[in-house]
Design a binder for these strands. Structure first.
Length: 554
RNA sequence: GCGCCUGUAGCUCAGAUGGAUAGAGCAACGGACUUCUAAUCCGUAGGUCGCAGGUUCGAAUCCUGCCAGGCGUGCCA
């Protein structure tokens, strides 16, 4: 419908040009915005002000000219005015907005679904935390972000798959194996010195203890290198299982767990390096193989095969991303912790060297979380084992509140998460505010049912009774939900959903306190019940996208 | 040193494509339950949008410089 209005405006400008009242030439892009204040209309455009400099006339005069040629054939406009420095404000016919209610009602749960992503396959890779320790709260933030973004992309028509890249080989794994091995030796009564760079968390001891308990000292006679491998494998399996369990509780799910080990067994890394070499992007220096990422804007070239013959993490990452393309995705979205930002230029370089379009690869950085407990910062190093795991935070704060809290912030804004505060906010947390809005409507419906009143559909209702400013405001919020979803999908900014939810819930709470939904007026009751139903559906849908429960009662 | 991110009310943070009087929650203060849930609502107070320039009809938003904090800057991942 926004399109319809812009069409009308563009047509008016063209007519003006044809009549010689406006200068010829390409038109500036038209922007239509929702004015913050109702008295500025339903839509406003600044087009006259943008055109002012080339027209050499005052914006208000240009606006008047445009209005003169405005043809509203479908009669959607009630009135138009020129305001302020030269805005054109459009006031639409009352039933314009109500039309969206019938759409919402007709589409039900599918309301808000769009064609934006139609036919496009997108792979969202996120979290991908190494299976060397429990997830911490920063992982939680990334998990929720990725999950919500994937949900939203799906909603607007993308074919989405969620993937977790499991880094199950290489240096970190070896270190994990050695750490467990040392603890194992200690469990067996040996006096050994624990490696300074090893994983010192209590969970390592626990894993070692279980191995000792279950399998005794059968690993003692084996050669160290072999045991380190075996125990590393065992430990990462245990840790990965607990990661999966934790994420399940956190309502974050994946379609695929992609193991770096599989990448190797299929020989994908050497193959892709060979191909890049064939294209002249690889050279040798100091015994190592380098990728010419500087050709694509990186600040230095990067090693892909070390002098000792081992391929780097970067090399497997190149192969991994090539494999993503090979699997037929049109768009790759990687969600990384902000501490990996230095990695972006080389990865973008690799994408281009592979011959892929740079715009088909997008990285979203999520800033890390600083955890506080009662004014004291909690250290979160996996290696030293000083952290509060995501599990503990979930237990303390609750999954709904935790997820909502994360989605309250922009991804690139650092987040201070104070456990005491989050718990204290348990009662005042905005998530309950929104959930309560949903529960309240459910409660109204219960009341209606007690009195034998059904919640009606659009066709059973005289929607023109909904003419209070609060009601129009609520209807508009329901109407822009699909646009909001598209905006979030395009900008990859799912956090906007929480602002929207609070806005919508707030308007409803206010409305609720001021006006009775169920009253002696039968027709009005039906109309308001219907409006409440629309709001409830949108609240439920939006909360669902965030992975948060929409309760029937609280 | 260089690069990226951040800086908005006492606190935590929103501010889509540059727009009209910069918003919300918490904290503070004062009110509203014989009516569908008071986990709510209504009101009051609270601002040099880090600082300084620039771009233009118009800047929290774009550009430059500076200040502060975080992160990165590996033949680690």
């Amino acid at each position: 419908m926004k399109k319809g209005l812009s069409g009308i405006i563009m047509q008016a400008i063209k007519t003006g040009q044809e009549r010689g009242e406006l200068a010829d030439g390409p038109l500036p892009p038209l922007t239509l915005e929702y004015p913050k204040e109702a008295r500025h209309g339903d839509y406003a455009t600044n087009i006259a002000m943008v055109m002012a400099s080339r027209e050499q006339r005052p914006p208000r005069e240009i606006a008047e000219t445009i209005l003169r040629w405005l043809k509203d054939e479908e009669e959607i406009i009630d009135r138009v005015e020129v305001a302020g420095p030269g805005f054109i404000n459009f006031f639409l016919k009352e039933d314009y907005w109500r039309h969206f209610l019938s759409e919402a009602d007709r589409q039900g749960e599918r309301y808000g679904e769009g064609e934006l992503g139609a036919g496009k396959r997108v792979l969202v890779e996120f979290l991908s935390a190494n299976p060397t320790g429990p997830l911490h709260i920063g992982h939680g933030r990334i998990g929720v972000f990725g999950d919500a973004l994937a949900n939203i992309l799906e909603k607007v028509g993308f074919e989405v798959e969620r993937e977790y890249y499991v880094n199950d080989i290489g240096t970190q794994m070896e270190l994990l194996g050695r750490s467990v091995y040392m603890r194992y030796l200690q469990e067996c009564g040996k006096k050994v010195e624990f490696p300074a760079d090893g994983y010192q968390g209590a969970y390592i001891r626990e894993i070692a203890r279980q191995i000792k308990e279950g399998e005794g000292d059968r690993y003692l006679p084996l050669p160290e290198g072999r045991v380190v491998d075996l125990l590393g494998q065992k430990a990462s399996d245990v840790i990965l299982r607990s990661i999966k369990d934790g994420l399940k509780r956190f309502r974050v799910s994946f379609d695929r767990w992609y193991r770096e080990g599989d990448l190797y067994r299929r020989g994908l890394a050497p193959r892709i390096l060979e191909e890049l070499q064939g294209r002249g992007y690889i050279y040798e220096l100091d015994g190592a193989l380098w990728f010419k990422s500087t050709l694509f804007g990186d600040e230095k070239d990067r090693v892909v095969v070390r002098a000792n013959g081992a391929t780097t993490y970067f090399a497997s990452d190149i192969a991994y991303h090539q494999d993503k393309y090979d699997r037929g995705y049109n768009l790759l979205i990687d969600i990384w912790g902000a501490d990996h930002h230095g990695y972006i230029p080389r990865m973008e370089a690799a994408i281009q060297a592979l011959g892929c379009d740079k715009s088909s690869f997008k990285v979203v950085l999520v800033q890390l979380v600083n955890l506080w407990r009662g004014g004291e910062q909690v250290s979160m190093s996996t290696r030293t084992g000083e952290f509060t795991s995501l599990q503990e935070v979930m237990d303390e704060v609750g999954v709904d509140a935790c997820r909502y809290f994360f989605m309250l912030r922009r991804a690139d804004s650092p987040l201070d998460f104070d456990l005491e505060l989050a718990k204290k906010e348990g009662l005042e947390n905005p998530v309950y505010y929104v959930q309560y809005g949903h529960a309240r409507i459910a409660s109204i419906f219960k009341k209606a049912a007690e009195r034998g009143i059904n919640v009606p559909t659009f066709s059973e209702v005289n929607a023109s009774l909904l003419r209070l400013s609060e009601e129009t405001g609520l209807i508009k919020r329901v109407a822009i939900f699909p646009e909001l979803l598209e905006g979030m999908a395009l900008s990859l900014e799912p956090h906007r959903l929480t602002s929207y939810l609070q806005d919508l819930a707030g308007l409803f709470h206010s409305y609720y306190n001021k006006h009775m939904v169920i009253s002696g007026d039968k027709e009005m009751t039906k109309a308001r019940l219907f409006l409440a139903k629309s709001i409830k559906a949108v609240l439920q849908s939006a909360l669902g996208l965030l992975g948060i429960v929409a309760p029937e009662e609280m």
